[in-house]
Design a protein around this nucleic acid. Structure first.
Length: 283
DNA sequence: AAGATTTGACCGAC
DNA sequence: GTCGGTCAAATCTT
């Protein structure tokens, strides 16, 4: 797959990202049906499988600029320049000169993103909340989080959290960018027994390319620090890996979901992220 | 005191 | 002009 990415391919990427986003939202809305061993569940599994394959193909292409992975450039914008001197205005904020526009203000919503439906905000990562915004199309505000290690390790991962309108107990978490930070001291906590028992992670669009990359750079800087911004006391750990490409299913729904999806997504997750068969891992 | 959160302002994309 | 994403001073928490 040596073909370079054309502008039209990028449009495809954007459209596919939207389709994937819609699929995830659909999964949340159809939780019961998807969880059951029903036709809906089978069709949903088929849909997610197809989306994953498309992303596999797209991610195997080179970028026009050459060399970089598809999402490397799209997901990880270059780090913003260090803040320098700014004019002081009479208002609360400093005024940035026209030549010093903030990179961060560029909208990222059109970039590939990974959306997770979760009952908890705790995903094993340490996040720092940096903003909250009322969203026009939604009655629930959206909260913005950046990785705690943004400045000390240059990690550009960010996430947006919004409570689901359909199911207020569920958070729709959009991950943008990938974690490049590491906190080795916490690695041994990866998949403690309780985590395995209480979670089920379904991979959405996890590619072998990403898996290989993560195998080289072990993900998941787990931390014992206070889980930041975990609203309303939701502190039970529900995810055990930093890779954001998951669909998180509450423990109670796990068996049914595993049946409905024939386990292929879960298999993909275990194989891609950990590089071995989960049956062996769990036994 | 240090670090985290809140919240109004700023700014680029659309 | 509107909207969404980010910044950063003020405030809160540990």
């Amino acid at each position: 797959m040596d073909r370079k990415l054309l502008a039209s391919d990028r449009t495809v990427v954007e459209v596919m990202s939207r389709i994937r986003k819609s699929a995830v939202q659909l999964g949340v809305l159809l939780r019961e049906e998807v969880a059951g061993d029903s036709t809906v569940g089978v069709v949903f599994a088929e849909l997610t499988s197809s989306i994953s394959r498309v992303f596999d193909v797209l991610e195997s292409m080179e970028t026009v600029e050459g060399g970089q992975r598809l999402d490397a450039g799209l997901l990880s914008p270059p780090p913003p320049p260090p803040p320098h001197h700014h004019q002081i205005s009479t208002k609360k904020r400093k005024i940035y000169p026209a030549t010093d526009r903030r990179e961060g203000c560029r909208r990222r919503s059109h970039l590939p993103s990974k959306i997770v439906g979760s009952k908890t905000l705790n995903d094993g990562q340490t996040w720092r909340k940096y903003g909250q915004k009322e969203i026009q199309s939604s009655k629930n505000p959206r909260s913005y989080f950046r990785c705690t290690h943004k400045f000390d390790q240059g990690c550009m991962a960010v996430r947006q959290v919004q409570r689901s309108e359909e199911d207020p107990s569920t958070y729709l978490i959009t991950y943008l960018g990938e974690h490049t930070c590491r906190d080795p001291a916490m690695a041994p906590q990866l998949f403690s027994t309780s985590d395995v028992n209480n979670t089920c992670l379904l991979s959405f669009g996890a590619s072998r390319h990403r898996a290989e990359k993560e195998a080289q750079v072990p993900a998941s800087p787990f931390t014992s620090r206070k889980q930041e911004s975990d609203e309303e006391g939701l502190s039970n750990l529900t995810t055990a890996c930093s890779s954001p490409d998951y669909f998180v299913i509450p423990a109670a729904e796990k068996p049914a979901v595993m049946t409905a999806t024939s386990g292929f997504l879960a298999d993909l997750y275990f194989e891609d992220v950990f590089g071995f068969d989960h049956d062996g891992f769990l036994s």
